[in-house]
Design a protein around this nucleic acid. Structure first.
Lengths: 126, 126
DNA sequence: CTAATCGTTGACGTCAACGTCAAGGTCAAG
DNA sequence: CTTGACCTTGACGTTGACGTCAACGATTAG
């Protein structure tokens, strides 16, 4: 299939697909007129990339998953490199959550100080 | 005082101070040679900006606080516009936390599926 | 006089994942 | 032949808060 069809079926822009190719995540063979030609299996690659991006992965994070799929695995997360990325991302997310919790407490405290009686719902004022 | 001293005392770069001025947050009068001249009170403004930035505020978010301070209030968060920003930022932070929690659950689930037995510490596997 | 230190105004670079033209080639239908 | 739909490769724009030159003027110490 060509880039337009893959884009439609994957729910992404053609620009995104070209960008993935540029980043080495989605190589495509070319037909004689220079058009990119994709396999059915490429749809799965794009789907994998998309689902990883939506949970906060970068394209670089997604690379091991794509390579894992292309190496024949049914799941992109089955390879040890992917598992390592999973672990790292989880600790990153945990760090971010911790930071946000600290910030929330700090901001809520400043609010309480600047405007006593301005209690928020979530703050635990009961 | 001039920009270098203010920068040192506030713990920021001179570039940052010029940027704040450009954004209209930190106007400075000029001495005859064109150098920026700051008051003691400007140190407090910069300190306020910095503390807000470190908890995730943008410079735009910080604007009401700066104006509040310059209008004579001892605290930048005392004015109603600042309180409104406080509230909004707290809900933003809460949204971000929720998103991250969802992502963490999703990633942990994918990890568990791809690699059974790869339990994480925080996941609640007990 | 000269070097050192401070200041000034541009203006481009950073980081990610594309969006959005621009200028043009390809191909099937009418 | 001419739309029109599709494709190609650049290449700049986006977002925020500056970092990092470049090229220059001001001030002071020696």
């Amino acid at each position: 299939m060509r880039i337009g069809e893959l884009a439609r079926r994957a729910g992404v822009s053609t620009r995104a697909l070209r960008y993935y190719e540029q980043q080495g995540l989605l190589p495509a063979r070319r037909s004689t007129n220079g058009y990119r030609e994709y396999e059915e299996s490429d749809l799965k690659l794009v789907t994998e990339i998309r689902s990883l991006l939506t949970v906060g992965f970068t394209l670089e994070d997604a690379r091991p998953f794509v390579e894992c799929l292309r190496s024949g695995h049914g799941s992109g997360g089955a390879c040890p490199e992917s598992v390592e990325v999973y672990r790292r991302k989880i600790t990153e997310i945990d760090d971010q959550i911790r930071t946000l919790l600290e910030r929330r407490a700090e901001v809520a405290a400043q609010l309480a100080e600047a405007c006593p009686g301005c209690a928020l719902r979530t703050g635990g004022t009961r």
